[in-house]
Amino acid sequence: MQTKRMTFPGHWLPYALLAPQVIITLIFFIWPAGQAMYQSLLREDAFGLRSTFVGLENFARLFRDGAYLNSLSVTAVFAIGTTLLSMSVALLLASTVNRMIRSRSTYTTLLVWPYAIAPAIAGVLWWFIFHPSIGVIPYVLNVVGYDWNHRTSGADAMMLVVFAAAWKQISYNFLFFLAGLQSIPQSLIEAAAIDGASPIKRFWTIVFPLLTPTTFFLMVVNVVYAMFDTFGIIHATTEGGPSQATNTLVYKVYSDGFVGLNLGSSAAQSVILMAIVVALTVVQFRFIERRVNY
């Protein structure tokens, strides 16, 4: 990695400048991560007095545990649902806004602000409008004959958290899709129009393929968001229920470790999550190095 051609001489100064960042990283990142790895190999007795080394037993148990396997599939459904819903709405809105000339910035302003809303707040907002007894939407659904109840129906609860998570993420995806659309050369689209291609055909044969890099990038970011940044949505609304239907991996680490005090198992789950983050980060960085790949 390069520096400037000319640098400052300094024996202790660079270390002093790096010290705050490095000390915080070591104390609050590296050490706890090491602890999680170490604890994942131990099992504590019921009173938390003694711990014995059990090797990979905690991991083996997790993969035999129906609740954990359920949590894996819940997380997959949640992440895929959130990503698809949020990205398709955002792409639709971005490509429509991109047609506009005078009203573009007004619509952009009106669409970006939900980024500022905390996941937990988004969760409470959607929880309230879907509230089975006082919410607006169950009232309407009731008229068409659907009995919405996210307290008893796992599918309803999953839809609720997907809506809340996707709603908050639309603004982010919208901004990146709009930037991607604006970097597509207008001449390509004009040439296709002269050849008689309809707007829909132009979108699928020219615009969408040229957006591939943006789409891939957003897919990774959205999956990371859905897996790791949505703890607040789950905790403030369904708390993993009903009967584990929305118990995502991150929520399960919290409830097993912090509420259930099963430290060995929670640590093993943390280690698995770390592996997932590392994998996703590698995918993201490999991809960004070859940002333009068509």
Partner: peptide, 17 residues
């Protein structure tokens, strides 16, 4: 490396620290 270690994946040990 800190990019790969969000709070969510190391809840308990960070709390202990």
């Amino acid at each position: 490396i800190t990019l790969m270690l969000p709070v969510e994946v190391r809840i308990i040990p960070t709390y202990q620290v």
